[in-house]
């Protein structure tokens, strides 16, 4: 499915962001990429769809080599790789619907996208996706009117609108509260399972990673130092990835954080049931935070 072969990236400043990363991701597999800041997680993800140009190695998607492509070919491949961003990266001044439809940009000619005259099939798909992520009524709102969790749902819908064969997900929960983070991760997981989509998720929160991914890859200073199922991720491995730290204490603190958020939601009485059922509780949570 996706294969990286000795991928390397060296920035002009001389920093080696990636030093020969090789790995394979199979159909339907959800891979969590963990590692300290500056380990090259973000670079790795962006090298796959070549938003960042790798300086060495090769990327294969379905045995098609991507690193030598350019222009129209590259865009044709990019449209099959959905990407979900840290801080959502929605076009804030466009409506939710326009943002979702922008997932079709690689498919439609310029005049269609310019006049917003998308093929009916694309519009149908967009409405269905908005319903799937629970934002059907918000289609004509501007993206900057939504709360964080809602925006990330739009980001997910935009990526799916591309009919992707692969999802690249960059810190999807970086600016969300613990509760919403879990909901977003659960949504991503469900969607990947529904479509047996492979996904590479860049994630800084080890607990979340353990909970929602099939396989964890630990990256340190541009090199893979761990590759295995979440169950094998013990303190020794964490120390190998992140350096020495009191992991037990950290995990307890993180768990307490998550509980705090749920307590806060509970304190809001009537909302808590709906929140627990996962029915767009972000607004309330955002109000609490």
């Amino acid at each position: 499915m996706l294969r990286l072969d000795n991928l390397a990236k060296r920035y002009k400043t001389g920093d080696h962001a990636l030093r020969g990363v090789s790995l394979e991701v199979d159909r339907g597999q959800i891979v969590g990429l963990i590692g300290p800041s500056g380990a090259g997680k973000s670079t790795l993800i962006r090298c796959i769809n070549r938003l960042v140009e790798p300086t060495g190695g090769k990327v294969y998607l379905n045995d098609v080599e991507l690193t030598s492509m350019s222009g129209a070919d590259l865009r044709r491949v990019r449209r099959r790789i959905g990407m979900i961003f840290q801080e959502y990266a929605l076009v804030e001044r466009l409506t939710v619907m326009e943002n979702v439809l922008s997932g079709r940009l690689g498919y439609v000619p310029f005049w269609r996208s310019f006049l917003r005259r998308y093929p009916q099939a694309d519009v149908d798909k967009a409405f269905a996706l908005l319903e799937r992520v629970g934002l059907a009524e918000h289609a004509d709102k501007r993206a900057d009117e939504l709360s964080g969790g809602q925006r990330q749902r739009v980001g997910i819908a935009r990526a799916l609108e591309q009919d992707p064969e692969l999802l690249l997900i960059d810190e999807p929960t970086a600016s969300l509260d613990p509760k919403t983070s879990r909901q977003i991760m659960r949504l991503i997981r469900e969607i990947c399972e529904e479509r047996s989509l492979p996904a590479v998720i860049n994630i800084h929160d080890v607990l979340l990673a353990r909970m929602f991914v099939d396989r964890i890859i630990g990256l340190t200073a541009g090199e893979v130092v761990f590759d295995g199922p979440p169950a094998e991720l013990d303190d020794a491995v964490l120390t190998r990835i992140y350096g020495a730290e009191d992991w037990t204490a950290m995990q307890t603190a993180a768990a307490e954080d998550a509980e705090d958020a749920e307590d806060a939601a509970a304190a809001h009485g009537g909302h808590v049931r709906r929140a627990a059922e996962g029915e767009r509780p972000e607004e309330r949570l955002a109000g609490l935070a």
Binding site: T95, M97, E98, L101, R116, Y118, Q120, V123, D124, K125, A126, F127, A128, E131, R132, A136, A139, D140
Partner: peptide, 14 residues
């Protein structure tokens, strides 16, 4: 779920 939305028109709001 997806059939409910099929055929629904969308125009950019002014």
């Amino acid at each position: 779920m997806s059939t409910a939305a099929a055929g629904r028109r969308w125009r950019r709001p002014p």
